[in-house]
Every structure is written in structure tokens, then in C-alpha cells.
């Protein structure tokens, strides 16, 4: 386990941050569209995982300690410093989500970067993400709703985590 990043690794992390910086902003359109048609629960199930995806993708591509955290955190930082109405909330969410995404890779001592780890790395950020939602929205939604949301967000995250791993595998195979 070595915390060694080459300049190419840094550049790929920057690419991940840039792509997800753009995707995170763009993803609000489908989120609100689905929410309008199918309600909040459907929107969470179908879209929340997108915001957790940068971490498993970064880890699957770079296979280094802290890659998951850096991938998520950088994407959140880039999203946050661009003018938008949420202040630096994206950075706060991304920091905690990135830390939780790091857990499955840490648990394997950074020896395995497979599909299962990517699914868990996609699912775990649901915990801090919904916990932060509770701090913001706790006075509106009852606790039962948050319990449902955390499960749906974790399922969504796991699915997008697997997709992230598949994309990383496809892209690594080509280069």
C-alpha cells in the first residue's frame, strides 16, 4: 500500500473531477424531471447514485489509497466553486461521501478494487448524504421518510458503483 501518485494519476483525477463537475450540474435536470413525474422516492432511487459515482470510478481507475476520496472531493470542489445557488454544500457533501466511499477499499487494505468493492463504495455514501439531508431538511420530513431514503439512496449508489466499475474497466481496456 503506497500513497504514490504520478502526474498521470493526478491528471486522470482532474479529468474525473471535471467530468463529474459537469455531470453533477447536469444531473439536476433529470432529478427534478423524475421528481415531478414519479415523486422524491423515485428521483432518489434513479439519480442519487450519480452523485456517489466519482469515488468508485476514481478508485477503479487509479487503484491507489485515497483515490476514491480524492475523486469525489475534487468533483464536489469543482462543482462548488462554480457559481450556483447551493453555496459550498456540494463540497461538504462530497467530503463526507468520499470518506465513506474509501471504507471498502481500506477494508481490503487497498488490495482489491473489484465490482463488489465498487458497489459498496457506491452504497456507503448514502449514510453521510442522508445524514446531512436530515440536518438541512429534518424539520420538514419525518424520520421514517429518511429511513426509506437512505435505503433507496444506498441501492442507487450500489447500482451506479457497479456501472462506475464497468466504465473504468472498459476505458482501461482501451488504453
Amino acid at each position: 500500500m503506497k500513497l504514490r501518485y504520478t502526474t498521470v494519476d493526478l491528471a486522470i483525477l482532474a479529468v474525473i473531477a471535471a467530468i463529474f463537475g459537469a455531470v453533477f450540474t447536469y444531473a439536476w435536470t433529470p432529478y427534478y424531471a423524475i421528481k415531478a413525474v414519479g415523486g422524491k422516492l423515485a428521483a432518489v432511487l434513479l439519480t442519487y447514485g450519480i452523485w456517489y459515482m466519482a469515488a468508485p470510478l476514481a478508485a477503479s481507475l487509479i487503484k491507489n489509497p485515497l483515490a476514491a476520496f480524492l475523486g469525489e472531493f475534487l468533483a464536489g470542489f469543482v462543482e462548488s466553486i462554480m457559481p450556483q445557488i447551493g453555496g459550498f454544500s456540494g463540497l461538504i457533501y462530497a467530503g463526507f461521501q468520499g470518506l465513506f466511499s474509501e471504507i471498502p477499499y481500506l477494508a481490503t487494505r487497498y488490495k482489491r478494487f473489484g465490482r463488489a468493492e465498487a458497489a459498496v463504495a457506491g452504497a456507503l455514501p448514502a449514510i453521510p448524504s442522508i445524514a446531512l439531508d436530515i440536518l438541512l431538511w429534518g424539520s420538514v420530513y419525518p424520520p421514517q421518510i429518511f429511513m426509506v431514503l437512505i435505503v433507496l439512496a444506498a441501492i442507487s449508489g450500489a447500482v451506479y458503483g457497479i456501472i462506475a466499475h464497468t466504465i473504468a474497466k472498459a476505458v482501461s481496456g482501451k488504453t
Partner: peptide, 29 residues
């Protein structure tokens, strides 16, 4: 809307992006 839609958007994005990243990294080095 679905995860499959997202996959079909993100795969070409990353295919291009990782290539760019590699060459930018090499150039910076």
C-alpha cells in the same frame, strides 16, 4: 433517466477523458 442511459453517456465521456488525461499528465511531467 435510467442508470443504463447514464452509462451510455459516461462511457464515451470517460473514453475521451482518460486519453486526454494520460497525455496531459505526460506533457506536464
Amino acid at each position: 433517466v435510467t442508470p443504463v442511459d447514464w452509462k451510455s453517456i459516461l462511457t464515451p465521456l470517460f473514453s475521451l477523458g482518460v486519453q486526454r488525461g494520460r497525455w496531459i499528465g505526460i506533457a506536464a511531467e
